[in-house]
Nucleic acid binder design. Structure first.
Lengths: 151, 151
DNA sequence: TATTGTTATACTCTATAACTATA
DNA sequence: TATAGTTATAGAGTATAACAATA
């Protein structure tokens, strides 16, 4: 019996997460914290509400993540220019440096993995992956409006 | 700029995890607990040490997961036939029923996703995914013997 | 002496609810 | 009245260290 497609995809994520955990082993960074940093690196300074939306977690959760990242010097809270209730969370130079390095590593890893596929098949592979994503998105969206299956 | 291959793979996992979370929403099951049940379903009754090894977590962690699953009637602890220090954790009929259903759903989802790929490209796709996994495994294994990159 | 599992303690991620300050 | 963020509380996953029972 061959390994199911789904299992292969999950194995890839597991390997990637292992590698992330190893890379962050001697730092206060975790997956959740890096996701927040990544969001700031891509989108620039942001309110905590916007971060909560982007990460699909509660505002309370963002408070905790920002507290930790601020305590370790990766981000800082700055006043919002027009709304005194809100803060803008932004990367510090240290945070920016780490994210720049991470984006470069990410791009290198991506290029490396792509080279594992025969050049003439890369486009077809991209197309097929997109088809799988589209189908999975369809299924998840349809399921979301229905009761969970194991209750 | 097209989405990187790695990002696509991570998106797939994210979608799959969302769907898992939805399916378990009204149950005491979680990803970690289901991973343990899945291991029992595939490998049969197991000591907690073996489960700790299989899930790559500490024995203490397994105690907690088994406590919760036992409390909710999915597994039970039975005496080890030859080692009075150890216990054998096994699925209850309820646990077995849930896992049977889950394995069937998993197989159906897998077949569904595979149908999203043109029939004549399915073998090539499998081959390419395997190549990506092999390369990633190589990289993770090599990295494991070196210090983390962001310390 | 080594192994199996548990008790004790602690940190992280996550959630809901109540509250403060501001809009 | 509504929104941004925090305090309070709680559950789940994870870890290390010390310990009991057994091998």
């Amino acid at each position: 019996m061959t390994t199911a497609l789904l299992d292969k995809l999950l194995l890839i994520t597991s390997l990637f997460q292992q590698d992330m955990a190893r890379a962050f082993a001697d730092t206060p960074l975790t997956e959740a914290r890096v996701t927040l940093l990544w969001t700031l690196a891509l989108g620039g300074p942001s309110t905590q509400q916007a971060l909560a939306e982007a990460l699909s977690v509660t505002p309370r959760n963002i408070s905790g993540l920002v507290d930790a990242l601020e305590g370790h010097g990766y981000v800082r809270r700055t006043p919002h220019p027009s709304d005194r209730r809100a803060v803008l969370v932004r990367l510090t130079p240290k945070g920016d440096e780490v994210m720049t390095r991470m984006q470069r590593d990410h791009a290198e890893l991506d290029a490396d993995l792509r080279r594992a596929i025969a050049p003439e098949r890369r486009d077809a592979f991209d197309h097929d992956i997109d088809a799988v994503i589209a189908r999975l998105t369809e299924l998840v969206t349809a399921a979301r409006s229905q009761p969970g299956g194991y209750a």
